[in-house]
């Protein structure tokens, strides 16, 4: 009971202000490139959220996208994503290659590639990105594989979802 009360308070700290984006959402685009046999992933995060969360977890000030961005920014982001974002392909854990990020007008795009993907029978995406920090965090995933578009919404209530190709 006491534990529950605490998570309620958490909501107060983060989702209040009228303008300074009281909403928390990420969008991930996953495409399968048949020419290169690679899965290409672009994750769009709100830069303020990336900084808030990573700095809360002990990272130095990041200054993402600024001229004085810390040299370790990519390392922090990569580590965070390794822990909180994963793709399971044909029921096997994949090796995700973090390529880098771009910061644009308040948004940070992170790029991940999964190489040597010969065939896709099933694809499961698990995302716990920012769900511990923001009560209302939703992580939307759009997949375009073999010409078919699927879309799912992950949140604290449902951290993973799977598409099966026949």
């Amino acid at each position: 009971m006491r534990l529950l009360f605490g998570t309620f308070l958490l909501l107060f700290g983060t989702s209040f202000s009228s303008w300074s984006h009281g909403y928390h959402v990420s969008i991930t685009q996953i495409d399968y490139n048949e020419k290169t046999n690679a899965i290409e992933i672009a994750i769009k995060l709100i830069t303020e959220d990336v900084e808030f969360v990573l700095e809360e977890q002990g990272a130095e000030r990041l200054f993402l996208g600024e001229k004085n961005e810390t040299g370790k920014a990519d390392e922090y982001i990569q580590k965070y994503l390794e822990k909180h974002f994963s793709v399971v392909l044909n029921d096997e854990i994949t090796t995700q290659l973090y390529l880098g990020k771009e910061v644009e007008e308040g948004e940070t795009w992170c790029y991940i590639e999964i190489k040597d993907v010969a065939d896709i029978q099933s694809l499961k995406v698990k995302s716990t990105v920012f769900i511990n920090e923001y009560h209302g965090q939703t992580n939307r995933v759009n997949l375009t594989i073999k010409g078919v578009t699927n879309s799912f919404v992950l949140s604290r209530a449902k951290v993973d979802d799977k598409v099966v190709f026949n």
């Binding site: 006491r2 534990l3 529950l4 009360f5 605490g6 998570t7 309620f8 308070l9 958490l10 909501l11 700290g13 809360e56 977890q57 716990t128 769900i131 511990n132 009560h135 604290r156 209530a157 951290v159």
Partner: peptide, 22 residues
């Protein structure tokens, strides 16, 4: 506001800052 907020403790884990808020 607290009563209607839906929530859960993820994987039973919580960091120090959230614990303090709690």
């Amino acid at each position: 506001t607290k009563a209607i907020a839906t929530n859960s403790i993820n994987n039973g884990r919580m960091d120090a800052k959230n614990l303090k808020k709690l």
